[in-house]
């Protein structure tokens, strides 16, 4: 099935059932792209400390698409779904910001509603490559460094807990964190150079 254009994410049931039979199954698309969908929800919600709402953003996007139906002219389904989730996540942040009368949303996020789909696809591919390099780069760390990387930086386990587990001071964990980040940055640079050759 060939796709020839770009479709915008709809919140209204406008294209709904007219397209039934031609568009792929939403369940199949979700099975394939849910990793990217959750990832964009996490990254969009993180600056506002609302990571716990990631599933709500993904769910809201899927329910919206269930109701509106899928369009048939989508070039890249991953980009389409990611965009749908990103908008829902931004809406969640915006609602919270309005409730708290916090800073303008535009100060926190670069809203990409009007950005080019090609650019978004390239960004997604680049991000996935970088994450893949990051996972591979963890191999350069020893066991203690890996604990700091995964548990403290990756999963945000408190510094005091990590310090207690390693038998070091919290200040030493801070030092280790910076060391770990430098090691990972250098390892990733090396892998990027290799990939580009």
């Amino acid at each position: 099935m060939e796709r020839t254009g770009e479709a915008e994410v709809e919140d209204e049931p406008s294209v709904a059932h007219a397209c039934r039979g031609a568009a792929p199954d939403l369940a199949a698309l979700y099975a394939q792209h849910r990793g990217a969908m959750y990832r964009v929800a996490y990254s969009t919600l993180r600056p506002s400390g609302m990571v716990a709402s990631a599933e709500d953003a993904v769910s809201a996007a899927v329910v919206s698409l269930m109701k509106s139906g899928l369009p048939t002219n989508v070039v890249n389904w991953e980009a389409f779904l990611v965009k749908a989730v990103k908008r829902k996540a931004q809406d969640i942040v915006k609602s919270a910001a309005v409730r708290r009368a916090g800073p303008s949303l535009d100060d926190l996020h670069g809203r990409t509603a009007d950005s080019d789909v090609g650019e978004e696809v390239a960004e997604r591919v680049d991000l996935e490559q970088q994450i893949s390099r990051m996972r591979a780069s963890l191999d350069v760390l020893n066991e203690r460094q890996r604990l700091v990387a995964v548990e403290h930086i990756g999963l945000e386990r408190p510094r005091a807990e990590i310090a207690a587990q390693l038998g070091v001071t919290p200040a030493r964990v801070s030092q280790m964190k910076l060391e770990v980040l430098k090691l990972l940055r250098d390892a990733m640079d090396g892998r990027r150079t290799n990939d580009e050759r």
Partner: peptide, 19 residues
Amino acid sequence: ALADTSELLWLSQHEAPPL
């Protein structure tokens, strides 16, 4: 640059839940 690395590491550890 370290912050970008940290952000990427954080993202790499945040995935979709098991099916």
